[in-house]
């Protein structure tokens, strides 16, 4: 019997030879880490499919109502969008450094990296909140208070001539653009909020030395999640903010 043979082999070695966090149904720590990461990647693939559905809807409606998507996109602040992209990429970098600190057993470095990542997460959501607030003020939020008239008769902004207006039927389709804008950035923001809750948990645990004894799988796999959220934004930014800015 194979299982008996394995049991006999193990009996020859002292039982406390392996780290405490190695589960008994795994042969080695490498196998355990590989299995956990594999599971994390499968979860991320379901996330790819989840966001992929919204991206597909975006592509189809963008092709149907292209002028409305251009007009909607031009109401977004390119400065705030670019700054937020930088903030999120920086948070991915600090998270990657956090994983490195965990791997090399640098407790202080890990705490600093996680705290910086959390702060950058708050910065991103703060900027996002400013952008959302402007959309509420302009009645660009889909629903009962949505008003497409600003796309029929655009007002000239400071220093810039007014953009040409859209016909009323096409202007109304900007509501489709803003529906997708809020659905996609909203789901992205929800993922960040979940990530920031997990970050807070990890900061407390790291401060208590919880990752100093080798079991850093949680930090590594949270890193995968955080980078995935970054990748979603890498696609959202050009697709939502940068449609035909030259027009």
């Amino acid at each position: 019997m194979d299982s008996h043979a394995i049991a006999l082999n193990h009996a020859e070695e002292p039982h406390h030879d392996h780290p405490a966090h190695l589960r008994h149904h795994f042969v080695s720590l490498e196998q355990q880490n590989e299995t956990v990461s594999f599971g994390m990647w499968l979860f991320l693939l379901t996330e790819v499919m989840f966001f992929g559905g919204m991206f597909t809807a975006y592509l189809i409606y963008r092709n149907w109502y292209y002028p409305a998507f251009v007009a909607g996109s031009h109401t977004l602040s390119i400065v705030l969008g670019t700054v937020n992209t930088g903030v999120l990429i920086t948070s991915s970098f600090t998270m990657a450094m956090g994983v490195w600190c965990a791997e090399t057993k640098r407790q202080k470095g890990l705490i600093v990296s996680l705290v910086l990542t959390l702060i950058l997460g708050f910065a991103f959501l703060g900027i996002k909140a400013v952008e959302y607030q402007e959309k509420f003020e302009l009645h660009h939020v889909p629903g009962a208070h949505f008003d497409a008239m600003s796309f029929v008769h655009p007002k000239a902004e400071a220093g810039q001539p007014a953009e040409p207006g859209l016909p009323l039927d096409m202007a109304r389709k900007t509501e489709v653009y803003f529906s997708l804008y809020f659905a996609m950035t909203g789901m992205h923001a929800l993922h960040m909020i979940i990530g920031m809750a997990l970050l807070s948990f990890m900061i407390v645990k790291a401060a208590r030395g919880g990752y100093s004894h080798g079991n850093i799988a949680f930090v590594e796999n949270f890193g995968l999640y955080w980078h995935f959220v970054d990748i979603v934004w890498i696609f959202l930014f050009p697709l939502l903010y940068l449609i035909s800015r030259h027009q």
């Binding site: 991915s92 970098f93 998270m95 890193g223 995968l224 995935f228 970054d230």
Partner: peptide
């Protein structure tokens, strides 16, 4: 691709 290859 850079994020997947190196950060991940």
């Amino acid at each position: 691709t850079l994020v997947v290859l190196f950060f991940m």
